[in-house]
Simulated assay, not measured.
Amino acid sequence: MTRRWSTAADVRTPVRRRWDDGTLLRCYAAGEPFPVIDVPLRRPRASEIGDDLGAVQDWAAALAAGSKGGAYYHVTYEEVGGRVIGRNELPGRAVVRSYGQAWALLGVTTEVRQLDQILALLAQEPVLRHWVGANPLKALQFGASWDRLMQAYRWLLAARGSGRYLREVDAPGVDTKFIERHRSVLAHLLEVPSTSAGFVTALGLRTKPELVRLRMDPTLGLAGEFSEAVLRVEEAAQAQVSVRSAMIVENEISYLSVPVPDDGVVIWGKGFEVDRAGALPWLRQTQVHYWGDLDTHGFAILDRLRAWLPQTRSVLMDRQTLLEHRDRWGREPSPTSARLDRLTQPEAGLYADLVSDTFAERVRLEQERIDWAWVNAHLPCVAPQRRAGTVDDPR
């Protein structure tokens, strides 16, 4: 019977709820008056008093004891009863009237003291203090790191737009590992994206340079007498060079194996990093061929490259090549079914067949599995470009 009556734990529940959602700490950090928490108590009915007065008295005593003499909450009493059992004063409500009572009831005095220390530390940093006040529970998760977070924030703010590398940070106790580990909160404080690249770029710091690897005809003079080079994309883009043809190859070993065309280059596309090749302005008026895996992602990369270089023609990514190598098919781990608007009609038809599993489930022919004699017979820099079935014209 007594289990239906409120206990000290029932008083604690709504207070805990307001702690967990941050309401109490936000009000506290803002210096606002305590939002009084008035908890109605489920108490014995008049008939239950007469049935077991001792149990009722024990219940009332337990609630009073749970208040710790008013340190946790105040109990207000109401009269219950009538002519039959007489008038009795029983607990009617439990009221938490102060922050001190709430902290004692929940046992969070240590956490609140830590928040006080954080707010004092950040007294001269209004942006940081405001964030802590709005997100006190998150702020507590960083604990003793706030001194270094403040130093990192100040350095990043001062370095904003400087073009410096993040590695150059010299704030007390702060290194790049610390910034990476706390990038999410620092991004909130600085109002920039929290992704690794977005964080650095939005702050105007220098990003790790993008590189492009290529083999070239030495007569181009692109890298002196060297036959292969790894160049910064922004520097390669500024080169004054006249390239007659280019082959972009997804797989590294295939990239190393194909012959370099006369007055041309072979570029390692490296999957979706093909954007780096696409960004080279001296390829815009050049004959470009792309050789990728024969799977859905291979066509997605081709479609992406054509956004940069619409004249790009695919090679060894045709239906005949696929069907001639049935014994070398694999399974694509995570096929895409994205809409690809830059494929030619033959490419789009084959892509649709791969998406719909026309030939088999998740068919994939990796380019390094294609018979090399077949490659030699169909590469445009080896065989005549007009040979039947070798090139799909994107026009």
Rank of each mutant, 00 (worst) to 15 (best):
D170P: 01
E332L: 12
F34A: 03
V260F: 07
P91L: 07
A377W: 11
T7L: 13
Y73T: 07
Y351N: 06
K270L: 04
A197R: 14
D52M: 11
D293C: 10
G204C: 00
S6G: 06
D175Q: 00
S145N: 10
A55C: 03
E366D: 01
V355G: 08
A123D: 15
L340M: 05
D275A: 06
L119E: 06
M317T: 02
L106A: 11
L309G: 02
D51Q: 13
A62H: 08
A229I: 12
A65S: 13
S356E: 15
P394H: 07
A46W: 03
P193Q: 09
V274M: 11
R339W: 15
Y290W: 09
L90C: 03
L24P: 01
A383T: 04
F142S: 09
R18N: 06
P209A: 10
V108K: 00
A152L: 07
Y72Q: 15
R183W: 07
G204F: 05
W372R: 14
Q124G: 06
A171P: 00
W372A: 10
G133V: 02
Q141D: 13
P394A: 05
G163S: 12
F299A: 04
H325C: 08
I49K: 06
L115W: 11
P136Y: 03
Q151R: 14
S194C: 09
G269M: 10
E89I: 04
E32S: 14
T344K: 11
Q240C: 06
D175T: 05
R87V: 08
V260Q: 09
D293G: 06
R319C: 08
L122I: 00
A65I: 03
R43E: 04
G163T: 06
K177R: 11
A360Y: 04
P333R: 04
E191N: 14
F226I: 12
D52P: 10
L323R: 02
V382G: 05
F226H: 12
S337E: 15
V382I: 11
A152T: 06
T344F: 05
D52C: 13
A197L: 14
W291H: 09
P91I: 10
I37W: 07
W59M: 08
W103P: 05
A144Y: 02
W268D: 02
Q151N: 13
